[in-house]
Design a protein around this nucleic acid. Structure first.
Lengths: 284, 284
DNA sequence: CGCGAGATTGACTCGGGTCAATAGTAGTGG
DNA sequence: CCACTACTATTGACCCGAGTCAATCTCGCG
């Protein structure tokens, strides 16, 4: 299932995306390790790293395309930070269908959902060869009492993840298919930009099926929508290579300003505002 | 907006739901306070409370129906735990539409989404008169270094919240309108049961509109679906009073086992299984 | 007693799911 | 090197679930 165990092309196989050889960490006894500062940088958490935490090292692990980092129900003991590569996290429902929850990439944390029950609640699969940093949870909490920036880091990351999921719920609950796909592309572009890659031309690491699952749509709808965007000139599509042509239009694109869930108070004015530019897309 | 400031009926006004006068906390200098143990009990976190944390007291605050506990963008400084009452948390999108994210009740934590940016990311509104416990975040993290159960408590609660939201995403992404409403009712019933109330007969604290927003549906669809369930004998409906008649059927009710997002491997068998009992509902 | 918010119900429409056929791509093995 | 096979993606035809619009009903509350 989902096996495409390629030979060994950690950074190869992708054309437009040149994974920089090593994002963080140094060799030591044949393995990669990172210190606290690197971890904080990776997470974009401005940790006032007072500590000379050079002795606080975290080990790396590599996963190859298709490998599972953790599965649902597996005993939880460690968190992961993505140093390089692309993954997906999925839920498996009672009928074996999988629901994609997120597409973690550089700087994202994995495994947080395991803390509560001490068993991972989701499954994480590598969509490309990956390099992850291990954060043994026991060790982490122990250190948290000594280095308080670590503790704040944890709270910050978990809260950020929570906000991200809230936004996702909002999107699933309120936006049309086109708007979801459009925002998905924009958010991908933003993330690539944040990682230093091109936000104008990039490769999707996931299938239409996975995108559809993530967005609550079918793969056909995703495909059709991408084709439509291409038609209109908002993007270019060639298989998994996406070129962003009009990011602004994608950002503001909507449809079905759902009269539902409209506050009586705030709604009145918004209704009028929306009426004006109610065409399919509003190019800023 | 959303003002229905009733006089003072903290425990009154609801027929089937008799809010027990005081769930936790004791008087002291004219206000209610709770210690760490009570907080843990409320959160269902089995904190091995070794500490004689009688000096660790957390203050309560009361909110009346319609009042806002915090709003979006407001500076974050404290978390809240619901001791009694019912609330909703909402997101406001760029057009003023509100998207309901959750319906917090006894034992739930509020405000976690504010940690990351130091500003609340959502708005919390009391749907009934409420009694909340204040957890000043600064104080909390400071204490966390002394009492490690507090720290674990925090991680546990945040992780639980994350898992809850994941389940929500899964539901929004994969289930039909009927299935969503059915599961919503079941989850409400379960929560009422956990609080010691009847899980067979209860009052909804929210409008159809709010339910619809929460489930990604219109209020009409919610209303129609409830009527349909009533018709079939799964529940009884009278305005906001809901009687659960066949909890099992509600739990397993689905529709559209979305052929989408079906793993090739696991899917095959599931497909056959599902084919058999593909009627509208499967009564166990 | 009348007003307004909420709930119910019907009629109509359409976005997007379903089914199906075709084509492009990549990895495998002869 | 090329055919074989298995995914993956694209596109069209069809249709149904749920959104939209609108009328009516109910219940509290002033």
């Amino acid at each position: 299932m989902q096996s495409q165990q390629t030979t060994d092309q950690r950074t190869a196989s992708t054309s437009t995306m040149h994974t920089t050889p090593m994002e963080a960490g140094r060799q030591r006894q044949g393995r990669l390790w990172s210190n606290l500062k690197e971890v904080c940088d990776l997470l974009h958490i401005p940790a006032a790293v007072s500590v000379n935490s050079e002795e606080l090292l975290f080990q790396h692990v590599q996963f190859k395309t298709g490998q599972r980092v953790h599965t649902i129900g597996q005993a939880f003991d460690t968190l992961y930070i993505v140093n390089s590569g692309f993954l997906k996290t999925v839920l498996i429902d009672e009928f074996g269908n999988e629901q994609v929850l997120s597409f973690p990439m550089k700087g994202d944390m994995l495994g947080v959902d395991g803390i509560h029950t001490r068993h991972y609640a989701s499954e994480a699969v590598a969509l490309s060869d990956c390099d992850l940093i291990l954060l043994p949870f026991k060790k982490l909490t122990a250190l948290g009492r000594v280095h308080m920036e670590l503790e704040n880091l944890m709270y910050g990351v978990m809260s950020r993840e929570l906000v991200r999921e809230q936004a996702m719920i909002g999107m699933l609950g309120a936006l049309s298919a086109e708007a979801r796909v459009a925002r998905f592309l924009v958010s991908l572009a933003d993330r690539f930009a944040a990682m230093g890659y091109s936000s104008k031309l990039f490769n999707l690491r996931m299938t239409r099926h996975e995108i559809g699952s993530y967005l609550g749509l079918t793969l056909e709808t995703v495909s059709r929508t991408l084709s439509a965007f291409n038609e209109i000139g908002l993007i270019t599509v060639d298989q998994r290579t996406i070129g962003i042509k009009d990011a602004e239009a994608l950002k503001t694109l909507r449809r079905l300003p759902p009269s539902r869930s409209r506050t009586k108070a705030a709604g009145k004015k918004a209704e009028l505002d929306a009426a004006g530019d109610d065409q399919m897309l509003a190019t800023a």
